[in-house]
């Protein structure tokens, strides 16, 4: 019999990403994070066009933009903005990430490769004071989205809910003309300890639509609510893998 190699899956070549990732593994503790989240109604067709076949749209269709600033993380401070689509996986409420921007090169790799956020490098600005909060998201010098909370008032932290996140993860094919060998969604359920929260009227605009960062493809069709919160949170391991197809 010829001799076969002895390599075990747990002992991969040292330079491959699994054995030598360019970023710390999960979980990432993220204490003292500040969030501005707007929830708004959008168009049925926009959701159906971008949701995977295993997810269903809610009635009415809605979306969220969450802008977060993390003053502490394993890769230092960074900000993250995520535009997500309201969805249902089987029967449960989920938030499917559609576009994302971070301002940290170090966080970018981990957010994309480890957690599957559809992330680009850009600028994320979040300001909050006296019951008002605003955020702007820029990519390649264009303000692709701007959100705000107006006429805010303090609310009980326990009334604020964050839905589990679904991020698409795909392995690109190295065979010409072949589909990706792996397509699925990772469900990420960060825990939140919310210290303070306000709620107010939501505003959403896409001042400079960009084909390269198409946040405007999820149109604003009416406000639901805006929330600002300060919380300790984390980026944990994925809790479930959700199939792409039904």
């Amino acid at each position: 019999m010829p001799d076969y190699g002895w390599l075990e899956q747990e002992k991969l070549p040292h330079a491959l990403p699994l054995a030598a990732p360019s970023y710390p593994p999960p979980p990432w503790p993220l204490p003292g994070a500040r969030f501005l989240r707007v929830t708004f109604e959008t168009e049925r067709e926009a959701l159906l066009r971008w949701l995977p076949p295993s997810l269903m749209r809610p009635v009415p269709p809605y979306a969220q933009i969450l802008v977060a600033h993390y003053p502490e993380s394993p890769v230092g401070p960074f900000s993250l903005a995520v535009q997500s689509l309201g969805a249902r996986a089987r029967l449960l409420v989920r938030s499917y990430s559609f576009e994302a921007v971070t301002d940290s090169q170090q966080a970018l790799l981990a957010l994309r490769e480890q957690w599957g956020f559809p992330c680009r490098l850009g600028e994320v600005e979040l300001r909050a004071a006296q019951g008002e909060a605003e955020a702007r998201i820029r990519v390649a010098g264009r303000t692709v989205a701007a959100i705000a909370l107006r006429e805010g008032r303090v609310i009980e932290p326990e009334t604020v809910r964050f839905d589990p996140i679904l991020n698409l993860r795909m392995l690109s094919s190295l065979q010409e003309g072949q589909p990706p060998p792996y397509v699925a969604m990772a469900q990420i359920d960060p825990a939140y300890t919310i210290h303070e929260a306000w709620r107010g009227r939501a505003e959403v605009s896409y001042p400079e639509p960009s084909e390269g960062a198409p946040w405007h493809l999820v149109p604003f069709r009416g406000p639901i609510i805006a929330v600002h919160a300060v919380a300790d949170t984390e980026l944990p391991y994925a809790r479930f893998i959700v199939p792409f197809q039904t």
């Binding site: 269903m56 749209r57 809610p58 249902r88 409420v93 809910r161």
Partner: peptide, 9 residues
Amino acid sequence: AQFPAVSAI
């Protein structure tokens, strides 16, 4: 499941 409960949103 299609309809967002007030408490969820």
